[in-house]
């Protein structure tokens, strides 16, 4: 086996009705990380997302019905474990995550300095300027998570992350259902995984809309905070 010299990299793209952007995301990843295997997990899209992905020749898994975002990512991680990938990168299907930043995420994992890396929009003079309400919400999450982890995490809601083998295996058994990013950090910390933030640049969304609409934001925040506190009570 050549696994020690060349790590097997899997790029997981969760997609739910992303036909406008999926093709450009795939090409972007292919150009920047040609050695990676690209996996599109289609969460029961009703549009042509799966057909586009398949026509581009990437591995496409299609859920029989809409299972939700958390389950979609978990399907990707289950695939990564099944086929022995050593690094799994999560890249959103809406074009927000730039493939030219993927290497920065996977390097710490390949060199063993971290088991999971999170692409942060705020580190090192990132020029990301969210709306007032959103930045307030993000600041609260950042505070709460940083206190729990006893380590500063600036961008807790970022879904642009890479995971090593052990984290992949852990995710296969435990992955939060909805809006999993923040909660997953707390779970990983409790299991003692080494978490590291890496500065990345992100684009504006290419199409589609955020999974978090303004009206749902408050509900989202309460739900995630509740989930975090319940997690702290577990075990």
């Amino acid at each position: 086996m050549t696994q020690n010299t060349t790590p097997k990299i899997l790029v997981i793209i969760p997609a739910f009705n992303e036909e406008e952007t999926i093709a450009s995301v795939i090409t972007d990843v292919r150009t920047n990380v040609p050695e990676a295997v690209i996996l599109v997990v289609n969460d029961g899209s009703r549009d042509s997302t799966a057909a586009i992905a398949e026509s581009l020749g990437v591995v496409t898994l299609t859920h029989p019905y809409n299972l939700g975002f958390g389950a979609t990512m978990q399907t990707g991680y289950k695939y990564a474990r099944q086929f022995g990938f050593s690094v799994a990168v999560q890249v959103d299907g809406d074009g927000q995550h730039r493939a030219d930043q993927i290497r920065r995420l996977i390097e710490p994992i390949i060199y063993g300095t971290a088991q999971i890396t999170i692409g942060s929009r705020f580190l090192d003079g990132g020029d990301y300027k969210p709306s007032l309400a959103r930045s307030a919400g993000m600041a609260i999450f950042s505070k709460v998570v940083s206190v729990i982890l006893r380590e500063k995490i600036t961008d807790t809601t970022s879904g642009f992350r890479a995971s090593g083998r052990d984290v992949i295996a852990y995710y296969c058994g435990h992955y939060p259902d909805d809006y999993p990013e923040v909660e997953a950090l707390v779970l990983l910390h409790r299991k003692g995984f080494r978490i590291m933030e890496v500065p990345v640049k992100m684009s504006e969304r290419g199409g589609g809309r955020s999974s978090i609409t303004p009206t749902k934001s408050a509900f989202y925040m309460i739900k995630v905070l509740l989930a975090i506190f319940v997690d702290l009570l577990k075990k």
Binding site: L61, T62, H63, P64, Y65, L67, A71, T75, K78
Partner: peptide, 8 residues
């Protein structure tokens, strides 16, 4: 459902 996805 995930198992079915993978088997498929």
């Amino acid at each position: 459902a995930q198992e079915i996805t993978m088997l498929r």
